[in-house]
Design a protein around this nucleic acid. Structure first.
Lengths: 350, 350
DNA sequence: GCGGAATAAGTTAACGTTAACTTATTAACA
DNA sequence: TGTTAATAAGTTAACGTTAACTTATTCCGC
């Protein structure tokens, strides 16, 4: 189970009859070493396959120049773009990024957090959905002085910065767009109506209906019920496909649908087509996120563009501020505007 | 820059007048501690916000129960599925997974490897494209006894297991399928023909043409040239869109196209439609990977299914074998079959 | 009552590295 | 010639934890 004992810096030093600090100076290109001694050390390093023990180094230095990012649904291109934005911003400041996945449960959240804390990362960015147990662990972690920033997670805690897209307004505007086009029977695919409290997009949809005195028909809201662990879960194209089929089987199907994200919308589109119906002629559809794929659907998808790169960049900057500051900075919150992108899934060209 | 000094186990012990080992026993639920002492320790742990220093612990224990996974193009759902398969298999054996991204360059490869090694992960799975500098670093890492498994990377080294999909046969069969349908002008989108040596799918395409005495028209092979660092790079839907437009502008455009992956194929489909052409009536198209989205395109995409989950699972198992074994096991290589999945982008229904 | 095992600690030293400091010598400049 | 700075090391001890071992007491079974 345990790895074979590795050659240590002290072994090299003993072999060459120099001090371990001399070997360290050569390896880290730090301080003064004569050319002759340097060559001898480098040769021994190569010959004896010495690799520095990063854990020992981290213990002594109390820094790792590594940041952790906890993601939920990595199959959604949203996650990829977020991760890349975070990574690029951190890289430019000399930090490495470790990504952990927490997809289904509070347990996965906690494991991811603990694992990163165990490795003494210099800070953590959390981009998974909120759940009570995970939040409690996050609070503990923050209380022990770990810099933390959350993205799109409904977690309010002094000392934790918060970046999110304005999902509430985004959901409202998506629904408003359909209402402006004359739709009154508007479905929502991707969540159970019970999740309105934690899903701002669903709440925005409901708000728009209410503003226009359109009665909410709960049968038009379809999605997976809460999982056992209390995490609402993520929405996939499969859910879109099945949810759309469910809506189409209603006695009075919707004429328009707002899907929780683009992935879900794309699945719904397939179900519409398989039923021999036209988009948007028979059913108009709006997604959310504006993933690259949204321009390649048939027809191209109307969607709400979420500023993924900006979220990632801001979160990284906020975290760097926390890492760099001796005092815990006051909490910052940025709610970023989304943008309705109208394409041909709701409006015919010309 | 340095984090505030954290409460240590020794601080707790001093405060309570017990030995540090006693605190350790309570925290780690190990050994014998009286109920009275346990309560006192737990109370102090909470009051003083003590968190174990994982780095110190890892240094002493020489194990982290963490594995690193280096991924290239995480925006491709292939990566998500691979990561999830790896994660699930490792989780069931008590290991955590840290994912690093290395997308564009050997430098990113090296940084990812070094960062993981620095944290003394128990092993590394590498799923990025091969490049000489990265390979050299990998060899060094392996020589210092780090267990390593590669996925889909053309890297042969004693002590490193290899899992891959049979891209050569997959590319051959995709092209064969188009030839069987009567196509003789078949394009390839996603890479420059110079990359044939490192891109098995491209080589398979060329092999199939050769088998059928179909002359290779280099103008029909289109994609990004090698990046500066020598890494061919990854293929996106954008490349598919632009590549298809390039092929359509030829005096004698292809009647069929094999795209390097599904993402690329989806982009090409958009270009075909924008040109007012039909799929497969005017141009047939085959992708590669069979990502979930492939069934939702319009028309559904013919593709070569890559066994992503099985690759991830096998790689994880191979790595666990290496981690668990005192001796370095002999090298294992598994090349997994792909499967041609015929949908409506090449063959009309009925 | 005796012996062995369990309980409940404490002690020792190690894990591998480096920040901070000390010592000695040499070179440069006024 | 004297002073200061640079060069080239070596020494000390710390980072925070735990594996392995020791010591003392109590409990249980024969």
């Amino acid at each position: 189970m345990a790895k074979k004992r590795q050659v240590t810096l002290t072994d090299i030093a003993a072999t060459l009859g120099v001090a371990p600090m001399t070997v360290s100076r050569v390896v880290n290109r730090n301080g003064y070493v004569s050319d002759e001694t340097r060559e001898k050390v480098l040769q021994a390093v190569k010959t004896m396959n010495y690799r520095p023990n990063g854990v020992a180094r981290n213990l002594k230095r109390q820094r790792t120049e590594t940041v952790g990012l906890v993601l939920g649904d990595i199959s959604n291109p949203y996650s990829a773009e977020l991760a890349n934005a975070v990574r690029e911003r951190l890289w430019s400041s000399g930090y490495n990024l470790f990504i952990c996945i927490s997809e289904h449960s509070a347990t996965e959240d906690i494991t991811a957090f603990e694992s990163l804390v165990d490795h003494n990362v210099d800070g953590i960015i959390v981009a998974t959905r909120s759940n009570e147990e995970g939040d409690e662990h996050l609070r503990d972690i923050v209380d022990s002085n770990m810099p933390v920033v959350v993205i799109g997670r409904d977690f309010q805690y002094e000392g934790v910065d918060h970046v999110a897209a304005d999902n509430l307004t985004g959901g409202y505007e998506a629904t408003q767009h359909l209402i402006d086009l004359g739709h009154r029977r508007i479905g929502f695919i991707g969540a159970d109506i019970k999740n309105r409290g934690s899903l701002k997009r669903l709440q925005g949809y409901l708000n728009a209906l209410k503003t226009h005195d359109i009665e909410v028909d709960e049968r038009l809201v379809t999605g997976r019920k809460e999982a056992i662990s209390g995490v609402p879960g993520y929405s996939t194209e499969k859910m879109g496909y099945e949810g759309m089929k469910r809506l189409l089987s209603l006695p009075n199907p919707p004429t328009a649908v707002f899907a929780r994200n683009d992935f879900t919308a794309i699945g719904a589109m397939t179900a519409i087509k398989e039923a021999g119906l036209g988009i948007p002629g028979d059913i108009a559809i709006v997604g959310f996120d504006d993933i690259p794929m949204a321009t390649h659907t048939s027809p191209p998808l109307t969607t709400v563009r979420q500023p993924m790169r900006l979220q990632g960049q801001l979160a990284a900057e906020m975290l760097l501020r926390r890492i760099g500051d001796e005092e815990t900075p006051e909490r910052k919150e940025r709610i970023l505007n989304c943008e309705l992108i109208i394409r041909e899934s709701t409006v015919l060209p010309g």
